[in-house]
């Protein structure tokens, strides 16, 4: 196909208008300069801002608005109830169970995935035969679709299923649990599946961070007689800090919004008893399935507020140095 676009040069690149002589900075052209700068800013940001406003801010506004109504999704919302939906949510023991489960997932993910990812990343950063294959395998669970992972583990963990059989084969028959049916066990099963699914992401992120550690530093440390462990402890890990904190941030937000894997792996009855519900599954169960649209919106707003506050606190205290000047103001 030949291009007929006149702005394309025969070489395929964009033709650049000939650069004029640098404009003299006379005081009278300052206003024009400012105006030009603003046109540029508006021109470049408008598409993104319009999309953001239309598909993020406006729906958020609607969610807050609807959350103030007793509304079952039939006809327009008319019965204004103020903050009653929010009160109802915090009075519902199942919602409190969902909050607790989210907390378990947030802290469980950080405490389990963090050390594992760090250890594996340090290991995979060394040269050895088959490193690429191992790296690939580690990342596979993350690439798989959530629903696929959910169905797979549901089948593996079912009573008398593969996991139970495997445990019995290796003499750990006593450890067999009703993984998906025991109401006290199921949230830990969910945490395990989530860990299996997302630890690969942490590892890859940390590996990328490790590749940014200048080899000169580790070489210098080696020349100074530092052991491999000392090098990691005093050179690599401190330089990995920013990457690690970003992973913690992403993991925390993801954990607060955990939905797909739990929705698929855990059956509705176990969710509705509070054993495996998260805020997000609770929202869908109540908003769509119990047809409490106003209430569902209130839960959505609570989920948003919790995630937002957690994100702000995290940025304020842990990410402060990493994102200085980009998100926060410049420190003078």
């Amino acid at each position: 196909m030949t291009s007929t676009n006149p702005t394309l040069s025969p070489a395929g690149g964009m033709s650049v208008p000939p650069a004029g002589p640098p404009a003299a900075r006379r005081p009278s052209s300052r206003a024009a300069e400012t105006r030009r700068k603003w046109y540029e800013i508006i021109g470049l940001t408008t598409p993104a801002v319009v999309v953001y406003v239309m598909f993020v801010l406006v729906p958020m506004g609607f969610a807050v608005y609807y959350s103030l109504f007793r509304w079952r999704g039939v006809g327009p919302p008319t019965e204004f109830v103020g903050f009653n939906n929010y009160v109802l949510a915090f009075q519902d023991p199942i919602f409190l169970d969902a909050l607790r489960n989210n907390a378990i997932i947030v802290f469980g993910s950080l405490l389990i995935q963090g050390p594992i990812a760090l250890a594996v990343a340090l290991l995979l950063n060394r040269r050895f035969r088959g490193r690429t294959v191992v790296r690939l395998l580690v990342f596979v669970p993350y690439v798989l679709a959530e629903v696929t992972v959910g169905i797979m583990w549901k089948l593996l963990l079912t009573g008398g299923g593969t996991v139970d059989a495997l445990l019995k084969q290796i003499g750990l028959g006593n450890f067999v649990q009703a993984w998906l049916a025991d109401l006290d066990v199921v949230i830990w099963t969910m945490l395990f599946v989530l860990t299996w699914k997302y630890v690969g992401f942490a590892i890859v992120l940390l590996l990328a961070g490790l590749s940014n550690v200048p080899p000169e530093l580790t070489e210098a440390a080696a020349i100074d007689g530092a052991s491999w462990w000392q090098t990691q402890r005093h050179v690599t890990l401190p330089l990995l800090g920013p990457t690690f904190r970003i992973w913690m941030f992403l993991s925390m937000i993801g954990s607060l919004q955990a939905f797909e894997v739990i929705w698929v792996t855990s059956v509705p009855a176990v969710r509705s008893l509070g054993a495996s519900a998260t805020m997000a599954t609770y929202m869908v169960d109540n908003g769509f399935f119990a047809r409490l649209w106003g209430y569902g919106n209130a839960v959505a707003v609570i989920l948003f507020a919790i995630s937002f506050i957690a994100a702000l606190l995290f940025q304020r205290f842990l990410l402060r140095r990493d994102i200085e000047g980009a998100v926060t103001g410049r420190r003078n």
């Binding site: 079952r72 199942i94 109401l183 009855a269 509705s272 008893l273 169960d285 109540n286 399935f289 119990a290 047809r291 409490l292």
Partner: peptide, 20 residues
């Protein structure tokens, strides 16, 4: 009874089955 009452009813019945 409609989805709202129906759903709450089913959840409470399930709790009987779960023993709590």
């Amino acid at each position: 009874f409609g989805s709202t009452v129906g759903s709450a009813m089913n959840d409470a019945i399930i709790a009987i089955f779960a023993g709590n």
